[in-house]
């Protein structure tokens, strides 16, 4: 009996190449009618889920958020499989609660901080390998296949949103691959968004938290978040930098 050799020459290179050609561009949509017959439509929408017409964002009502509530952080940690030991300077934190006291008025507020998914993200600009990138729908991610671990994005981020993975990891969540020597941050739960859902933190804030977080498409004037943003005053953090973050805060 002859066993298949592991070094059998590539039998059908054209198959791979054809797929590359049709699917990689994004500007070409194809429909396979039957084997051997393919329809092509140039200039159409890609079949991919990240819609360039959308821009995902979040509105956080600081008045509703309380200092003692940690629901968003717990939910994110569970969903994406990270955990931060108290006082550890090296553990990753995708989302954190920040307590603030106004220096002049003494007003105390609490709010969640995570990647702000900027329109003009400094992390994307400074990344030498294009590992830091923005999806067509505005979600800023790290391509860990290309990340070399230089940490320039961490230096460039005005929000301290990114963490470097300082230790070897095992048993990651299948939706949130993460590993030693690369940089990571909030993904806006991109796997849930692609499936039509919303980020775990927003879900948790609505159920066990105080309902301070609203998620939606900033480009759709009919979405709840767009309506709320039109009605109420809100700010993006470090608006002086004009990065146009996708996460906005009201009553801050």
């Amino acid at each position: 009996m002859k066993l298949p050799a592991l070094n059998t020459p590539l039998r059908d290179l054209s198959e791979v190449d054809r797929r590359e050609f049709f699917k990689a561009g994004g500007a070409v949509a194809t429909v396979a009618l039957s084997s051997g017959v393919t329809l092509m439509a140039f200039g159409g929408e890609a079949s991919a889920n990240a819609d360039p017409g959308k821009r995902w964002g979040m509105l956080i009502d600081v008045n509703k958020c309380t200092s003692d509530c940690n629901a968003c952080v717990t939910a994110c940690s569970k969903e994406n499989g990270w955990s931060a030991e108290e006082g550890s300077e090296t553990d990753a934190q995708w989302i954190r609660k920040v307590d603030l006291t106004h220096k002049q008025t003494g007003r105390e507020v609490s709010l969640p901080m995570m990647c702000q998914h900027c329109e003009d993200a400094p992390c994307v600009d400074v990344c030498p390998t294009e590992a830091s990138f923005k999806r067509p729908d505005g979600i800023v991610l790290v391509d860990k296949h290309a990340c070399i671990g230089c940490r320039f994005c961490m230096m460039a981020c005005p929000y301290k949103a990114r963490s470097f993975i300082h230790e070897p990891l095992t048993d990651q969540k299948s939706n949130a691959p993460r590993g030693q020597g690369t940089v990571e941050s909030c993904t806006l739960c991109v796997h849930r968004v692609d499936a039509g859902g919303q980020p775990a933190c927003v879900d948790a804030c609505g159920t066990t938290g105080n309902g301070a977080m609203l998620f939606g498409d900033l480009n759709d004037p009919e979405s709840d978040i767009s309506k709320a943003l039109k009605k109420f005053n809100s700010i993006g953090l470090r608006d002086d930098l004009r990065l146009n973050p996708g996460v906005r805060y009201s009553n801050l």
Binding site: V126, T129, E130, A146, C147, I148, C150
Partner: peptide, 19 residues
């Protein structure tokens, strides 16, 4: 963090980056 991937800097260059 991943010195083994140094060659990636040559295959994927982002010319907006001063690096």
């Amino acid at each position: 963090g991943r010195p083994d991937r140094l060659l990636v800097t040559l295959t994927h260059a982002n010319f907006k980056s001063i690096f």
